Computed example of a mutant assay.
Amino acid sequence: MSNLNTIIPERTANIGNFMVGRLLPFREKRMVGPFAFIDHMGPVEMDENENLDVPPHPHIGLSTLTYLFEGSIMHRDSLGSAVEITPGAVNWMTAGKGVVHSERTPENLRKSKKRLHGLQIWVALPKHLEAMEPTLHHTNKQDIPHLEMDGVSIKVIAGEVLGKKSPVPVHSKLYFIEVKSGKKRKVRLGDYLFGESGLYILEGNIFSEGNCYDPKQILVANDSKLCEFEIGENTTVYIFGGEPFPEERHIHWNFVATDKSIIEKAREDWKAQLFPKVSGETEFVPLPD
């Protein structure tokens, strides 16, 4: 029996002035562990007149994880944070009861040519933390734990796995790791993973159970304990997952909650502009129909 439960292709989605490859949610698989949403952003070339500009917009009930491969994003939020996100760093914003943020090309890059490429991820909060106070935690690239295993390079970007713990302050049992190899290698991680597990191929390919899988798809395992595959030359994959929650999560626009009434209240509050404001910003993303 195959250990692959679902294969999720990247689908194009529009997030305003930017096209992304949407990976989660998917109709047959809404979440993988606590991971509720994954967008592959770019790679995109922007000229001197093009910039990323996502005006202030709200979130509830989740943590956002932004991880860049190339380029830079200026993050501003209603907590008063103003942080430039650069490649290899982890920007982890926990929305809890409600936070607002904007994402823009930094001022020093706005009039030059640039590239942008990365992942934007939502991790749902456990039910008892859905209404927690919002927080922001930024982890620098050099603080992400790294190990070599059987000739393969692994970074533990978030969570705890393989005997390493990321400093990113997650709120449930999960893992988000980068696996990179220049040569073909066997990768056996089943003894270390738990809960549900997904694998996203960024570049290169992997071989599993007689099949070759190429970039821009997520492979969801039937059993994370059986996670083993052959990684191809010059390949980078991301493995993510963890313990699923007992309750269903509802997702509407930028809101995640166990109860639809919480989402409805967030909708009304955003319509009435009752969420906290991002200092210095006057624009906002209107509530979609």
Rank of each mutant, 00 (worst) to 15 (best):
M132Y: 01
E148P: 05
L162F: 13
E133I: 05
A131P: 02
L129W: 00
G98N: 14
L119S: 10
V123Q: 05
L125W: 03
L116H: 04
P134M: 06
S112D: 08
E107P: 15
T94F: 03
K114T: 04
L147G: 01
S112C: 00
H137K: 15
K141W: 07
E103T: 10
E148I: 15
L147T: 09
R110F: 12
K141Y: 11
E107G: 03
H138A: 12
V156F: 01
I85C: 07
E107M: 04
L136G: 05
M132W: 01
I121H: 06
E103R: 04
A82F: 03
E160T: 05
V90F: 13
V100S: 12
H137S: 14
G80V: 09
G88A: 04
W122T: 02
E103S: 07
K114D: 08
K97L: 10
K111T: 12
K114G: 04
K97W: 02
L129R: 09
K97T: 11
H146R: 11
E148G: 13
W122L: 05
N91L: 00
P145A: 04
G98Q: 11
R115N: 15
P145Y: 05
A158Q: 13
V99S: 12
L147H: 01
H137V: 14
E133V: 04
V83G: 09
K141N: 06
H146K: 08
V161M: 10
P87V: 07
T139D: 05
H117Q: 12
T135C: 00
E130T: 05
N108L: 05
I85Q: 10
A158H: 07
I154V: 13
V83C: 06
R115D: 10
Q120T: 07
E107R: 03
K113Y: 02
P87I: 03
N108M: 11
V100R: 02
H117M: 07
I157A: 06
I154E: 01
Q142T: 05
R104T: 15
P126L: 00
W92P: 14
G118A: 09
H117A: 04
I154Q: 00
V99D: 13
E130Y: 08
V83S: 14
T105N: 10
S102Q: 12
H117V: 00
S102T: 14
